[in-house]
Nucleic acid binder design. Structure first.
Lengths: 246, 246
DNA sequence: ACCTGAACACCGTTCAAGT
DNA sequence: ACCTGAACACCGTTCAAGT
């Protein structure tokens, strides 16, 4: 671990400030309000300098996404380390996802945009691989919980099913529900006033469908959720609540 | 039903051609390749004329989305009308979603973009309401199947759960899975070579979790799926297969 | 009444000129 | 070696002038 030269530190710091401002612009003015011009203007850099740090606008977005994904992975790892039964640890990771979108509300926009093919193809292999790695590590964390459940007898894996199948089920349901909840305009008209509560119910039913014990009617998972929020993620919960009030 | 004047017909026709070209540009060059400039150029209209049909670029996108959503609703209705048990009709709607994304691959991009807050807020109330209406009618179709299942005794609704909760579960899982499958880069690295097959498995498990009979191990739903594809959606299946080959 | 295309503001990106 | 900002190409949107 070599100490960085003053120059290198300066570059790193400037990069961090660019991302800071980019995030601010995104949160305050939406995707439309984010431009290389504006970032440069706020930071009083020239446009040219921006391009020494990021080869294009898309790279700024992907860097922003990766920053957030690093935090999410950390939160997943905390969640998976919860001392409890395997299904409780799974619930902890679900709550981590929800807290994450509350703490990084702009990330949803970023991720949606970055995944557009015409945006994605302009990004650099280095940052793409970083994103891929975060994604796979998240899958591995949840997959680990599934494997633990099988190892300790909380669940039998159906033949032809791999632990990743279950991970994909939870991932797609949670991603889909949060995505719809954030952007759909007809949810409460359709009788879905509290999409998060409904998501929890559906997650339970899915896991019940795989026979992961204790089944939802055999155990008080509501109490588990409350305990997790007040212990593992007490700081995050308070921050999310504060953000909601604002 | 009054006949339209020649002028009115011309306007309608031109609007249709604008959307046609917009879709083409989107499919061939991605979101980045779609611009008012290019549409006008291809159709040999002036830029100004474009703005007599659509007040902004976002309106073109939303009109495109609504066009596709009308087709999807139609497909859902065909699916729900399948003569079979309630769970089979549910499977038919799931297959309809999949065929829809295969037949309108650009729609996913459009829907992702249209839902960005900074894009959404520029659209007109008229087209927004149209989109909302399509969304709610889709929910109503699936909700109807759930209600039928309850009515005929294939399922008991847990207390505190409404049919829309189950609809939301299936909707979020299917939307999430298709969205991830279309855009994620690490799926097959993570051992998920056939995300659609895994989606089917997870849908089954979710519905099993709600106790919707016959449960997946009591019935050959694989055969059901094949029959649906070759009867209700035979034309769509063939079109999707042809598109896959291209 | 409708259409046109010049004009404007803004944006991403590049690069010759400066330090 | 690094930074700057003028310059270019492109885009969304408007509107005075034309028919």
């Amino acid at each position: 671990m070599k100490t960085l030269s003053r120059k290198q530190r300066e570059v790193q710091e400037r990069e961090a400030r660019i991302l800071e401002v980019a995030q601010e612009l995104l949160v305050q003015h939406g995707y439309h309000g984010l431009s290389m011009d504006r970032i440069a203007e706020v930071l009083e850099y020239s446009k040219g300098t921006m391009y020494q740090h990021f080869s294009c606008k898309e790279e700024v977005l992907l860097a922003l996404a990766n920053q957030a994904l690093a935090v999410r992975l950390q939160m997943f790892r905390c969640a998976a380390a919860y001392r409890g039964r395997t299904r409780e640890r799974l619930i902890a990771t679900g709550l981590a996802s929800e807290l994450f979108v509350k703490l990084f509300p702009h990330h949803f926009t970023v991720e949606q945009v970055i995944r557009l093919p015409s945006v994605w193809e302009k990004t650099s292999p280095r940052r793409r691989d970083a994103m891929r790695a975060f994604e796979m590590q998240c899958i591995a964390v949840i997959g680990g919980i599934v494997r633990d459940a099988i190892a300790c007898g909380d669940m039998e894996l159906p033949t032809g099913t791999s632990p990743e199948h279950i991970v994909f089920g939870l991932w797609s349901m949670t991603f889909g529900a949060l995505s719809i909840a954030m952007t759909s305009v007809s949810l409460s008209d359709a009788g879905l006033q509290d999409p998060l509560a409904v998501l929890h119910e559906n997650q339970s039913r899915l896991v019940d469908g795989y026979g992961w014990r204790p089944l939802s009617h055999e155990y008080d998972y509501q109490a588990t959720a409350e305990k997790i929020l007040s212990t593992v993620f007490s700081a995050e919960s308070r921050a999310a609540a504060a953000r909601n009030r604002a």
